[in-house]
């Protein structure tokens, strides 16, 4: 028996919004420790890794580990039926081929449930090696989304260059070029608004705008985003989900042939 209850169903909806444009389907691996998902996009350029810890849920029970393969467009339809203040309970029997979502309104005057068919997905888990990153940049997630959106108008790629002075995002295209430089802030009072750079050595890497834009769909999950970079290694874009876990995106760089 698997049962997970989250008072704030809107959080799950935000997680879904953050992955559904990148992934058509994905397996949710449920165990005693929580729910994990790892999946590549169709083009195998990026990887999504979601980790929700069991004690972040308001109720969590997982007697036997199970993998639930889901079509994310279908799952979005289910969550479109939930109210923003609803509580969600996710339930599945061991070896079941369906999963049930129950939504309860705040005062419990409305209770709805949706049963969805599960899929058998041929899933391949990738090993993510431990990396000593050259640069780790922590910045407001809304600012990152804004920069990626702005620069995407001009070119297909963004060069992210980090030095101890700051981080620079650059693009070039048919109509010209664009650069955004962010300096490290000294505003320690407001951690949410600060740009913090932890640099071992300078690094400059090129990434496809299309994927960066899809990652920024996670912006509503967290005020801050962390970008971790190292030469010739995928970029890690990490959003912490308060009290529940984290959502990480890995993006392969564009490299000179």
């Amino acid at each position: 028996m698997f049962e997970a209850r989250l008072v704030n169903s809107a959080t799950f909806k935000k997680i879904l919004d953050a992955i559904k444009d990148l992934l058509d389907q994905a397996s949710f691996d449920c165990s005693e420790s929580g729910i994990q998902l790892q999946a590549m996009d169709n083009s195998h350029v990026s990887l999504v890794s979601l980790n929700l810890k069991s004690d972040g849920f308001d109720k969590y029970r997982c007697d036997r580990s199970l993998t639930m393969g889901m079509n994310l467009a279908s799952l979005s339809k289910v969550f479109r039926c939930s109210g923003s203040d609803d509580t969600v309970t996710i339930k599945a029997q061991d070896d079941a081929d369906t999963v049930t979502f129950m939504f309860e309104s705040k005062k419990q005057e409305k209770i709805s449930d949706y049963e969805m068919k599960l899929m058998n997905l041929d899933q391949e888990h990738l090993g993510i090696p431990e990396t000593e990153f050259s640069c780790i940049i922590k910045m407001p997630s809304a600012e990152f989304a804004r920069i990626v959106r702005d620069l995407s108008q001009f070119g297909e790629s963004i060069v992210i260059s980090c030095t101890k002075e700051g981080v620079k995002f650059s693009t070039q295209g048919d109509i010209g070029t664009g650069n955004v430089k962010l300096a490290q802030t000294n505003n320690f009072d407001k951690e949410e608004e600060s740009v913090i750079i932890d640099m071992q050595e300078p690094v400059s890497l090129t990434f496809a705008c299309q994927y960066l834009n899809l990652f920024t769909k996670a912006t509503p999950l967290s005020n801050q985003v962390t970008l971790s970079m190292c030469d010739n290694v995928p970029l890690v874009v990490e959003y912490q989900i308060p009290d529940l876990g984290h959502l990480c995106y890995y993006l392969a760089p564009k490299i000179e042939e």
Binding site: V45, L47, L126, G127, P129, A208, V233, Y250, A252, K254
Partner: peptide, 14 residues
């Protein structure tokens, strides 16, 4: 000329 790498050229199946 830059070419897009695949994520599987960095991360291998477990």
């Amino acid at each position: 000329k830059l070419s897009q790498k695949s994520i599987t050229s960095f991360f291998k199946p477990n």
